[in-house]
Design a protein around this nucleic acid. Structure first.
Lengths: 134, 134
DNA sequence: AATCACGTATTGCAAAATGCAAGTTAAATA
DNA sequence: TATTTAACTTGCATTTTGCAATACGTGATT
């Protein structure tokens, strides 16, 4: 398994964050859970981006070890596991929202999706509150 | 040189952003320019994190090609180049700010720096406006 | 108990990115 | 013209990614 133990010790908050979620996949896993209600390994695997199984399990373990996700057995399907966001994980919501806003302003591709952005524009506080409750 | 041409075509704004700055160094380069006033290759190289020369030049070229940085000769020192943020680059400020806030809440290391966070807490709008003017 | 299905996870390997050290180029100054 | 400064470039070992195939663990079915 990959390590991700390359942590910078500068004390800088940006570096601290990037050491945890500074890669192509970690925040996308958070997106699936926070914005799309996915909760299990296989649900996240089906997401439209096509994350590889080894990368996904690596990121799930990493996020769990960082205290961003909690893993427990699904009481309704005892061969499955449910990943839930902790407070630390839910607190990532404003970062995702700002990425959505930035991309909304600067993604000029014809297939760019702006639906979530519209929701945020209309009622950011409400949108964020919904995320945090889920 | 490395490529970074692994772009996802899903239309998702999170994926759009991560395809551009989803790695360990890109936002740290932006931090040096936006929060610490660095403007040249060698100024950024001296930053406390120790970025390698080939990685730095790769990221500068990448950010320039994405329209986030503009490169021009320094009129006062014609062997130097100045990198300035474009509007697209300055618009990354809220993302950096939210990362600082998140890390401020969740970085419990003894050497964690909270000085910038304090400024943001006291007057976020003012802080952000200063960044965007610089 | 043996078999099957499902969901989670691991392994092997090629390709790409990273990290480090050393070298090169171009412009200004002595 | 020689030297210094600033911006890169190159080579190479290591690490991470991406992909396909395979294995493991749990619960249901026969």
């Amino acid at each position: 398994m990959q390590e991700k133990n390359r942590k910078r010790a500068s004390g800088c908050p940006i570096a601290f964050g990037l050491d945890i979620f500074g890669d192509r996949w970690t925040l996308l896993v958070i997106r699936e859970i926070m914005l799309r209600g996915k909760r299990t390994y296989s649900e996240i695997l089906e997401a439209d981006e096509g994350i590889a199984t080894n990368i996904l399990i690596d990121r799930l373990k990493h996020l769990e070890s960082e205290g961003i996700l909690e893993k427990r057995r699904d009481p309704e399907n005892r061969r499955s596991f449910i990943y839930n966001l902790t407070k630390k994980g839910r607190d990532l919501a404003p970062i995702l929202i700002e990425i959505i806003i930035w991309s909304g302003a600067h993604d000029h591709r014809p297939n760019a999706r702006h639906d979530v952005l519209e929701k945020i524009r209309k009622d950011r506080a409400g949108f964020e509150a919904d995320l945090r409750d889920s």
